[in-house]
Amino acid sequence: MSMLTPSGMGGKYRITGNAYPRMRRPRRRGRIVAAVVASVVVLGLFGWGAVQLFHVFNGGDGDTKANAGPQNAPTCKPAPTPTHTAKLAPLPQPAGVTVNVFNATTRGGLAKSTADELAKRGFKVAKFGNAPITYDKKVTQSAMVVAGPAGEAAAREAGTQVGGATVKIDPARKDNTVDLMIGNGFSALATPADAAKARVVAANPPPPKPVCTVPTTPATKPKG
């Protein structure tokens, strides 16, 4: 047992015991509180930023590019079934094609002038005149070639003479003649060089492509 008598106490007070009391520094509570508050603020900012990013990438505001992509994705339908199911017949020469030339426009004289030019190119022109009511003023493209199944190859041959012409096969038609319906988009027959190039394509037409449409983005309502 050790005994200490502080000086100046005249022995009145004594400190006894085996251990001395520890002298601690006063706690700096202000700094601790400030550090805790700062940590809470930083965590709050991180959480707010994470919420904003979540809304942006999930289209929360309905006007973001991340959300616009899938909505505007094109919708494709299967390619139309070809009109022919068997192997295509080889194209005949112009001399083997009997064609009727009809004017489906409001412009006069197109049937005769076109028929005369086709005759010069070796086609057999049976007749020419105004288009029947089924096609009159209803052909928007340059020309439409109408034929029955027996005249499918002849229709493809005649179609090479007009750029942008389409071929329509009428199952009810039995003969092998073709009708060339001159449409509103017609300006003149294709040049012999262009007709020769079109003939190569008509002899080996590519498979039909799927039809794709892109939906329009609906207008967004103003926020308020």
Rank of each mutant, 00 (worst) to 15 (best):
P82W: 03
T83D: 12
T81F: 11
F102S: 03
G109P: 01
T106G: 10
G109I: 04
T114N: 03
K87D: 11
G96I: 07
P78L: 15
A119K: 12
T114H: 03
T64G: 07
D61V: 02
D63L: 02
A95H: 04
P92T: 04
T114Q: 02
H84T: 05
A89F: 01
R107M: 09
A66S: 14
N103D: 07
N67P: 00
K65S: 14
P94R: 12
T106F: 01
A79W: 08
P82N: 11
A111S: 14
T75C: 03
F57C: 06
P82K: 01
H55K: 07
N103I: 02
A111H: 03
G59H: 02
V101S: 05
V99F: 05
S113T: 15
T98A: 02
S113L: 08
T81G: 09
A115F: 11
K77M: 13
P90C: 00
T81D: 06
N103G: 04
L88Q: 01
L118D: 06
P70D: 13
A79V: 03
Q93D: 13
P90K: 02
H55C: 07
P94E: 11
N58G: 01
C76N: 01
R107I: 14
A119W: 07
G60F: 15
D63R: 14
E117I: 03
D61C: 09
V101C: 04
N67R: 14
D63M: 12
N103E: 00
S113Q: 15
A111N: 11
T64H: 08
